[in-house]
Design a protein around this nucleic acid. Structure first.
Length: 579
DNA sequence: TCTCAGATAAACAGCG
DNA sequence: ACGCTGTTTATCTGAG
């Protein structure tokens, strides 16, 4: 089976010729990618801003009362900059109005940053003049119209947009055209016309102070500086055109993957005789359409092939990469290596990620972007008593992640391996057997090695877990604030999807006999800590300086236990492939 | 290129 | 004997 990462442009061309995507599919893909990019940038910017604010505060404190002259000079410069920026803004607005007029007249139809139409021609080897023309269109029209829908391209996708998402957040729905969808009321008109703030939020290459050009994450304080940055750093040159071409290919790969996954889903549905919910009828499973590979197709050839695209729409709401950008030229080349690892090192709080994307992970057979150790820890921390038996850990995996409902022998072995290997997992014997707990200190010890690039975050993580809690909260707040219709609304808010997923689950549950479960889950009657009478400390005991022993290891419960009371998967046999 | 961490596979032992 | 649990070793891979 051909894997996306080895697809050459020629192959892609062939595939594209064979598989004609519907406008809806295209739109879904584009939305996914855009939302993903946006969200990743939001997170990155969130981190950066926190850092910047800290640094600014520090600098201000240091310079307070020390060098008032410098401050005055700085203020002068700032004032000048503001005046200049205002001029730029005015120019920008004029340009924008002009372009809007053009678009109304039908002279401009291409979506900024989402060159859907020229995709194929590009893939088929766009000649420089074509690229230039495209580039002109892109750079020209990106000041026009944009927003969550981005559906005013030549492809009429407005229905897809409207139906596929719950009412988007204002930040994502701010263009005048979108108001025709009846969403204009969400806007808070600060100016008579579309305000600059609104407009700049809608720029596909600019989000929350960060340039979203693939591979670029330059911080632009405001929109005018972003425009300057765009014109200076991303002018029409070889590099930019190459990046544009890469972006095209990225989109195409996503399209290809989507179409294939859709085919799989169709085949699965027909195979499982699921009739009621026609997948393509549901207007949006933005997350599921692309990633619900409840079948085993993707991993048949290579079990690790699934997680190969952290930048694809299969990625749930929480971004995984913190790297250069959502989509970089390198990411293209890196797509697909087997055993791809990500996650922990990307500073994504696992609890918030899982919480945010719970339904996604439950239904989509996508490998969670966290290491086994992180997942095990999360499972244990989520438990009421911060302790789980091995079997309960297994159950948590299968309950929370569709991915772990397959290849049980593999990942269970990995779980056991991790439990034994990592000192952060402490086995505690109680009357009923052994349970596993987390040595949070040990766990945090190993993280600094993995986190690079953000000292403040490292510090956050190292200092105390409690310190992480507000960070998580702030992060989640930020995520909620900038919620994108990609996953949250499409999956969680989509009853059709939920019913589809649950229907399939029930179908599976009905078929599989619970009696074949691999163990008894005794979680309801978990024995209390007092019942423990023996603590098995691993070979390297904790340093006495590290204070508390294993029994006081887990002190934080920053996440609400989201155990499913129904415990759908608790006793569900892990449908291993080999059985 | 080297090192390290993680993933995976597998062998093995203890236990019920 | 069998399966589960837990440990350990080896190998491969990706990333820094």
């Amino acid at each position: 089976m051909m894997t996306p990462q080895v697809i050459t442009p020629q192959q892609m061309q062939q595939i594209l010729q064979q598989q004609v995507l519907t406008p809806q599919q295209l739109q879904v893909l584009i939305q996914q990618q855009q939302a993903l990019m946006l969200h990743q940038q939001q997170l990155q910017e969130f981190y950066k801003k926190q850092q910047d604010q800290l640094q600014i505060q520090l600098i201000q404190q240091q310079h307070a009362g020390k060098q008032p002259k410098e401050q005055q000079q700085q203020q002068q410069v700032t004032t000048q900059q503001l005046a200049f920026q205002q001029q730029l803004l005015q120019m920008q607005q004029l340009q924008q109005q002009h372009l809007m007029t053009l678009q109304r007249q039908g002279l401009l139809s291409l979506q900024p940053g989402q060159p859907t139409l020229p995709l194929q021609s590009l893939a088929q080897g766009m000649i420089p003049t074509e690229l230039q023309q495209l580039w002109k269109e892109v750079t020209g029209s990106h000041t026009v119209d944009d927003g969550a829908c981005n559906n005013h391209s030549s492809l009429d996708l407005s229905t897809t947009c409207v139906s596929s998402t719950a009412p988007p957040k204002p930040s994502l729905l701010i263009n005048p055209q979108a108001s025709t969808n009846g969403q204009a009321s969400v806007l808070t008109p600060k100016r008579e016309s579309m305000s600059h703030e609104e407009y700049m939020q809608s720029h596909p290459l600019y989000g929350h102070g960060v340039c979203k050009w693939p591979g670029c994450e330059a911080v632009c304080e405001d929109y005018s500086s972003f425009i300057k940055h765009l014109n200076s750093e991303h002018a029409l040159d070889d590099r930019s055109t190459a990046q544009c071409r890469v972006q095209m290919q990225v989109v195409q790969q996503l399209e290809l993957q989507l179409s294939k996954d859709k085919e799989r889903l169709q085949a699965m549905m027909s195979h499982l005789h699921v009739k009621s919910t026609e997948p393509k009828a549901s207007p949006q499973p933005l997350n599921l359409v692309s990633s619900v590979t409840l079948s085993k197709t993707a991993s048949e050839s290579s079990p690790q092939s699934l997680p190969h695209t952290p930048t694809t729409p299969t990625t749930p709401l929480t971004p995984i990469t913190q790297g250069p950008s959502v989509i970089t030229t390198t990411s293209i080349h890196n797509v697909g290596p087997i055993r791809r690892r990500y996650s922990d090192k990307y500073n994504v709080p696992i609890s918030s990620d899982i919480a945010q994307n719970q339904e996604f992970y439950k239904n989509a057979e996508v490998r969670p972007p966290f290491t086994y150790a992180s997942l095990i820890r999360q499972a244990i921390l989520e438990s009421p008593e911060k302790q789980l038996t091995l079997n309960e850990i297994y159950n948590w995996f299968t309950r929370m992640f569709a991915y772990f409902r397959r290849n049980a022998a593999t990942w269970k072995n990995a779980v056991r391996h991790n439990l034994s290997l990592h000192k952060c997992f402490v086995r505690v014997e109680n009357v009923k057997g052994a349970v596993w707990t987390v040595d949070e200190i040990e766990f945090q010890k190993r993280r600094p090695q993995k986190i690079s690039g953000n000292p403040s975050l490292i510090k956050n993580i190292q200092t105390s877990h409690a310190y992480c809690t507000p960070l998580n909260a702030a992060l989640q707040a930020s995520m909620a604030e900038n919620s994108i219709p990609l996953y949250t609304t499409a999956s969680m808010g989509n009853p059709a999807l939920t019913s589809l997923a649950s229907a399939m689950r029930e179908e599976l549950n009905g078929v599989i006999d619970h009696a074949t479960s691999n163990g008894s889950d005794s979680s309801p009657g978990r024995s209390p800590m007092q019942a423990m009478h023996h603590v098995h400390v691993k070979e390297e005991p904790l340093d006495p300086d590290d204070n508390e022993g294993p029994l006081s290891l887990v002190t934080t419960a920053n996440q609400s236990p989201d155990f499913d009371p129904d415990r759908d998967y608790e006793d569900e046999p892990v449908n291993e492939d080999m059985d």
